Amino acid sequence: MTPRRKKRLAIILAILIGVAGTVGLTMYALNQNMNLFYTPSELVNGKPDGTMPHVGERLRIGGMVVEGSVKRDPDSLKVSFDLKDIGPTVTVTYEGILPDLFREGQGIVAQGTLVDERTIEAFEVLAKHDENYMPSEIEDAMNKGHNADYDYETHTMKNQE
């Protein structure tokens, strides 16, 4: 092999290694910043495809705030509340100012880290904007296992006689 070919081969190999390293680091960064959406039932029982979140994973969870479950610390901005869809409840802890629209019986989405099997430490809480609006992921999850005869847009039972 001539010195010219060796030099070309070395340059091509260096470029390929650089591109592979860049792609690998990009994939790693994207994987670290991915927030998967779960409902309380999916968090406890797993998604239909069998995936379960692990402790320390960042995720988003959506559901309805359980009536009477909001507990506020009088000395700080710490608050904890339970979320429920159709199955088990999950506890969310949050330190900060909650949105103005946050209340019991309200649909919310929280972003945070899974602390244990049924506890999320949230760093952001979002309340729904409108009385008739429900995030599509929550509505779909509730329609699957919940009473499919309930119309979430009109808040009435379908096919009533």
Rank of each mutant, 00 (worst) to 15 (best):
T51H: 06
V65H: 15
Y38G: 02
T89I: 07
D116C: 13
T113E: 10
D75C: 01
V44K: 09
R118E: 05
Q111W: 05
D82R: 13
V79R: 03
H129V: 11
L126I: 15
R58L: 04
V44T: 13
R118Q: 06
S80F: 03
Y38C: 08
V44Q: 14
I61H: 11
K47A: 03
G68I: 11
S41Q: 04
A122Q: 00
S41T: 09
P53C: 08
G46A: 06
I97W: 08
T91L: 05
T119W: 09
G62S: 15
P40A: 07
I120T: 02
R60E: 12
E121D: 10
G96E: 02
V66T: 01
D82A: 14
S41V: 04
F81C: 12
V92R: 08
G105I: 01
I86P: 04
E124G: 01
P48N: 02
P40F: 01
P74Q: 00
S41H: 07
H54L: 09
Q111M: 09
V79N: 01
I61S: 14
D73C: 13
R118D: 13
G96K: 09
P88Q: 04
P48W: 02
Q111S: 13
T89H: 06
L43C: 11
K47I: 03
L126R: 14
M52S: 06
E67I: 15
G50V: 07
G96A: 07
P74Y: 05
K78D: 12
R60A: 11
L59E: 10
D116W: 11
G63A: 12
D82S: 08
D49F: 03
Q111F: 04
D130K: 06
I61W: 09
K128S: 13
E57G: 07
G87I: 00
V70E: 15
D73W: 13
V115S: 12
G62H: 07
G56T: 00
M64K: 15
K84F: 10
V44R: 13
H129G: 14
R118V: 09
L126D: 12
D75Y: 10
E117G: 09
Y38W: 10
P88V: 02
N132E: 04
T39W: 00
D85Q: 00
K78F: 11
T113D: 10
H54F: 11
F102W: 11
D82Y: 12
V65R: 14
T89Y: 05
I97E: 12
Y94S: 05
S80T: 10
E57S: 10
I108A: 04
H54D: 08
V70C: 14
L98I: 08
R58C: 00
D100S: 06
K78I: 03
N45L: 15
M64Y: 15
G96S: 07
L98N: 08
G105C: 03
E121R: 14
G96H: 04
G46P: 08
K47R: 05
F102M: 02
L101Q: 15
E95N: 14
E117L: 12
Y38E: 08
G87H: 07
R103P: 02
L36A: 11
N132V: 04
G105S: 01
H54A: 05
